[in-house]
């Protein structure tokens, strides 16, 4: 089944970079603008969907194992961030307003949106982004590769 034309393949190659950048942008700006981890992760997963449709025949084996692991890592990262807040309470935002990573204090009122703010929220957005990206990619891969399901 080699009926995917060269045009489709070339366009897919070209689209990889813009889709990746847009997805990452939505994830990283999750605490400033609409979107966030879930939306950005879903956008990144469309990349995998596109690659699967275009280059399905070139895959020798199903790379679902790596996404399975990535999915767990995303969730573990998220819950560990919640655990790190335990010095005060579970899910406490322990990075905000400390002038460190994502710790720039913001004054009350209108501002253009500073990326380096909001404490653990951007980090949790990234964790959710990884999780949603890998989970949706996993679903796409499972559906496309005619994975036969569990056997005894």
């Amino acid at each position: 089944m080699n009926d995917v034309s060269l045009i489709v393949k070339v366009v897919a190659y070209i689209l990889i970079v813009p889709v990746f950048i847009f997805g990452s942008y939505v994830i990283l700006h999750g605490h400033l603008s609409p979107g966030g981890g879930f939306a950005g992760g879903a956008i990144l997963a469309t990349l995998v969907a596109m690659l699967v449709i275009t280059f399905r025949d070139d895959f020798k084996e199903n790379p679902h194992e790596i996404f399975s692991i990535l999915e767990c890592i995303g969730m573990i990262f998220f819950i560990l961030l919640a655990f790190f807040g335990l010095s005060s309470s579970f899910f406490h935002n322990f990075l905000v307003n400390l002038n460190g990573l994502f710790g720039k204090p913001v004054h009350f009122g209108v501002n253009p949106g500073y990326l380096n703010t909001a404490g653990v929220i951007p980090l949790m957005n990234m964790a959710v982004g990884i999780e949603v990206f890998s989970a949706l990619s996993l679903i796409v891969l499972m559906l496309s590769m005619r994975y036969g399901g569990e056997r005894k």
């Binding site: 692991i69 767990c72 890592i73 573990i76 819950i79 655990f83 335990l86 309470s89 579970f90």
Partner: peptide
Amino acid sequence: MFIIEHLPALVIAIPLLAAFIAPL
């Protein structure tokens, strides 16, 4: 005291964390 203070959160959080470490 630390564990006792955080008991209600820990009983939910521990299985949640363990669930995602298990596949690894």
